[in-house]
């Protein structure tokens, strides 16, 4: 069994992590579908284990201007959930969330940000409920935050607590879409070192749980 030198995480744990996050993501998207009344499907799920130094690649470059919906993971383990979208895609998301024709939204005011926050709330809650049910951990989302800024500045700030313990980053890239609208963005799930430690420590318990 191979082991990552920097993290001590075995391939089997990575595989379980990928499966767990994949299932949680699908449920989160399902919750989002219910919220907006539109069928949304996950078109790509990709677990990445990358050096933290290369994290900017995940968001198209450190200076890339993006809309980030952030939800922190608290409770039995900690981490970060981020939905990262280019500005024009975020406008399209707001149109979808508010039942408007595509192209209606052209700026993010209070109302539009509130819609995106609600999206973060639903996504985070469904995601963590699924993850909690599968692991026995009590996981809670922080109130969602919407930011428009350099994607790297946001991502690197969230990574600072991970960087104090690890040299590698576990990220799940997710792309989803609807039948008539393209939502090409990223759902990044970033567990802290604590999160992975909890997973490893409790792996025998996890083995009794259906993943």
């Amino acid at each position: 069994m191979e082991e990552s030198k920097a993290t001590g995480v075995h391939d089997v744990e990575l595989s379980r992590w990928a499966e767990l996050v994949g299932r949680s993501t699908k449920n989160a998207v399902s919750g989002l579908s219910e919220m907006v009344g539109i069928h949304i499907r996950v078109t790509a799920l990709d677990l990445k284990v990358i050096p933290i130094d290369n994290a900017a690649e995940l968001v198209g470059g450190a200076e890339n201007e993006a809309v980030v919906i952030y939800v922190g993971i608290t409770g039995g383990a900690t981490g970060h959930i981020m939905l990262v979208y280019p500005l024009r895609v975020a406008f399209g998301l707001v149109d979808m969330l508010m039942g408007e024709e595509p192209g209606t939204t052209c700026e993010l005011g209070e109302l539009e940000e509130s819609a995106l926050q609600e999206m973060g709330n639903i996504t985070g809650t469904f995601f963590l409920n699924t993850m909690g049910d599968s692991t026995g951990l009590v996981l809670m989302p922080t109130p969602p935050t919407v930011m428009v800024d350099m994607a790297g500045a946001i991502l690197f700030s969230a990574l600072s607590d991970i960087m104090s313990e690890r040299e590698e980053l576990f990220a799940m890239e997710t792309v989803f879409s609807t039948d008539d609208r393209e939502i090409v963005g990223m759902l990044l799930v970033l567990p802290t070192a604590d999160f992975m430690d909890v997973m490893i420590e409790q792996k025998n318990q996890y083995a009794r749980v259906q993943w």
Partner: peptide, 15 residues
């Protein structure tokens, strides 16, 4: 910067 001023996880006074 304090990028996550409205969030409440423990690391966000890193800036």
């Amino acid at each position: 910067s304090q990028m996550f001023k409205a969030a409440s996880t423990n690391n966000f006074d890193t800036g």
